[in-house]
Design a binder for these strands. Structure first.
Lengths: 335, 335
DNA sequence: TGTATGTTTGAGAGCGCTCTCAGGAGGAGC
DNA sequence: GCTCCTCCTGAGAGCGCTCTCAAACATACA
């Protein structure tokens, strides 16, 4: 079994350079090409990635950094969906992927690994308002695509949704239902998406002539957080709650029920994400659908394109969201 | 900023070899070492992994292959937990990890990527009875640790639990409760864990003098599968069901409730895994706890040790499980 | 026939690192 | 003072690949 290009060259009676051309698509005469291909077929040759990487400066491997608290990474199907989408796109293009999960990998560690020259590019979640890791990555010069983006990232390549507009739309829906004491359970205090959703909520209230403050309780994207926050809002006498995530809404739903209130009769409830379980809740949850796997796929594609033609400049993609109305806000909907 | 060993060598007035010794722990005189360390500090040097890999034949990167249907990978927190554990251990030891998810990556593709000489070792799930990928990996000569193991893998390195004994124990629990028509919803038909759990279930019935057949319905580890299978068992008049996974049990719980039966009064229900939601179900689910993250961590540690001292031979680890009794089988337990 | 143009090929110079090998320095033992 | 060891260091040979450059050959045009 041939192990190196030189072996192949000898076997097919041409030079190493020619074999390399056949493999990488250089210009070679048909006969020569066929000769080499034959040998290639019989030898089951595999190029050595390390050598290729060293010589070409490209590795065919991209890094993926899910920079969130470890226990959040998979408690939520959000990150799982992202990862699935990224993997999809990447394997489709025969690119490898190295993964870093959680925030246990400190900036330092990451910076080290990433600047080892092993990674062609990086996909990183950028939802934390003040994230030195993302800053470091961006200034490192390694091609980077963000999932989400902070204010400061407006000149970076990213894939995101319009959280603010989406939140505004879903709050509009609540307003349209005639609710006047609409509460909001926020996302993590330090998350961009959380802040944007809150802003959208406020904007909607303002446009509707409702007091845009007051009925806000802080959440953290978890069901537990949602439960506690909802309990407070219920005391405040809300007649609707817009939660910054479906998980939060699931917690809120429990709280509402435990308080003896009905959804949507007493309190209309809306989430955000449209995770799989949203339609399985009782009542099914009105929510803002975002195509999470699609975001992952797009991020990978985005990065791949960026690597292919760096001169194209940063690529910014806002993916659409979709308001999904279910019985948690509109009780009379047919099941 | 110094980029290569030669730059460092020049800056510190020694040879490249000496710098390499300082970095990799060769014998160097204290003064020389200090000189180099000083330079190292100021230059923020990062070794080039590709070059190191090429020269040493080691990459510091291991592959992780979750070889299951893509949609299963994260629908279930099982794989997420595994991944989290693996990541934990790996980053702790400063090893990188490349990930392949789902079965969309065909044996061929994988084989290609894996034999590129980029991976020091591989962790792969081995729960499918007939899995050419695992066979290929094992015969490839790349150090491999399996998560789970088939009969044929008894000479490989693996981390697993004793599914059969665990299933037997949980069925014993049901028997001990006085149930006599104990049904079982299996795991995926082609999964080793599924078969083992079924075997354990049967063994328990046999020992109890109950007919060890008949009341078995095929599941697939999903809630949907559990729902359908449970519906059949209910018709068969079971008074207990042992499900091969918690997800399955969640589905079964719905089915039982929809059939107007009570848990555990009419039908005692037990799962397997002790996923986070098991204790949140109503009633809380009796189940067999396995430390999923622990399995992932152990697999990574196992592989790391294997790489360190290959002469140690295969390392087989069976992690303990724990029967967690909750109200789904024993109604009078205090909450 | 001579020159210009294009195509195919091989030689060879790296990419940045590891590791072996041998030379030089310094101390111990005779 | 000599040899023998030990310890530290530098020179240099790869690792397997990519890519440039120029030679070799073929084709086209004047």
């Amino acid at each position: 079994m041939a192990r190196t290009l030189d072996d192949l060259a000898e076997l097919s009676g041409v030079s190493r350079a020619t074999v390399s051309r056949v493999i990488n698509g250089g210009s070679v005469s048909p006969e020569t090409r066929q000769k080499v291909l034959d040998v290639l077929e019989t030898t089951n040759y595999r190029p050595n990635l390390a050598a290729r990487n060293l010589a070409s400066g490209k590795s065919g491997v991209v890094g993926v950094v899910m920079h969130v608290a470890a226990q959040l990474t998979f408690s939520d199907n959000y990150f799982a969906g992202l990862l699935t989408g990224i993997c999809d796109s990447l394997t489709e293009h025969a690119a490898g992927m190295m993964l870093w999960l959680g925030n246990r990998t400190k900036e330092e560690t990451l910076d080290q690994i990433l600047s080892m020259g092993m990674l062609d590019g990086i996909i990183v979640t950028a939802d934390t308002v003040d994230d030195p890791l993302v800053d470091g990555l961006r200034s490192s010069g390694v091609p980077t695509v963000l999932i989400g983006h902070r204010r400061a990232d407006s000149d970076a390549s990213y894939v995101d949704i319009d959280s603010e507009a989406s939140a505004e739309a879903i709050t509009d829906h609540l307003v349209g239902l005639g609710r006047t004491r609409i509460g909001h359970i926020t996302g993590r205090r330090d998350s961009v998406s959380g802040r944007d959703r809150k802003a959208g909520y406020r904007q909607s209230l303002r446009r509707a002539g409702l007091p845009p403050g007051g009925l806000i309780a802080e959440g953290d994207y978890t069901a537990e957080g949602g439960y506690k926050a909802a309990a407070r809002l219920i005391e405040d006498g809300v007649d609707a709650i817009f939660c910054a995530s479906d998980n939060t809404a699931a917690g809120a739903l429990d709280a509402i029920r435990n308080a003896g209130r009905r959804v949507p009769d007493d309190i209309a409830l809306a989430g955000f994400d449209d995770l799989a379980f949203a339609s399985e809740l009782d009542p099914p949850l009105t929510t803002m659908r975002q195509d999470i796997e699609g975001i992952g796929q797009e991020a990978a594609r985005n990065l791949l394109r960026l690597l292919e033609r760096p001169e194209g400049g940063p690529r910014r993609v806002l993916l659409p969201t979709e308001l999904v109305i279910r019985q948690s806000t509109v009780g009379w909907l047919s099941g």
